[in-house]
Amino acid sequence: MESKITEVYQNAPVEGKETECEKVSKLLDLVIDGEATSEDQHYFNHHIEDCVTCFESHQKQKLLKGLVSGHLKRVIVPESLALSIKAKIQKTL
């Protein structure tokens, strides 16, 4: 009674599995960015249920995107900027 994880690791280098991983790795950015078709998304989800390596790549890529979207500080717009744009526009014919 081997655990599922061990089984997956043992199966990982099998011929044919490789190309599936390659396909999934090409879909990775599309999936992360919400640009994958529902068919691709389904294929991707199905694959990472069984493949630890691809599952981990997916986790890492999500984390990376989250670091930018969630942690990069926004700079504060100087208060004078909107006013000065409006003033310049009013002077423009």
């Binding site: 700079v75 100087p78 900027l81 000065s84 744009i85 310049k88 526009i89 423009t92």
Partner: peptide, 15 residues
């Protein structure tokens, strides 16, 4: 520089 660039952008957009 960001300030200048944004002003320039809005002026172009206005034109």
């Amino acid at each position: 520089d960001a300030n200048d660039l944004v002003q320039e952008t809005y002026l172009k957009a206005y034109r």
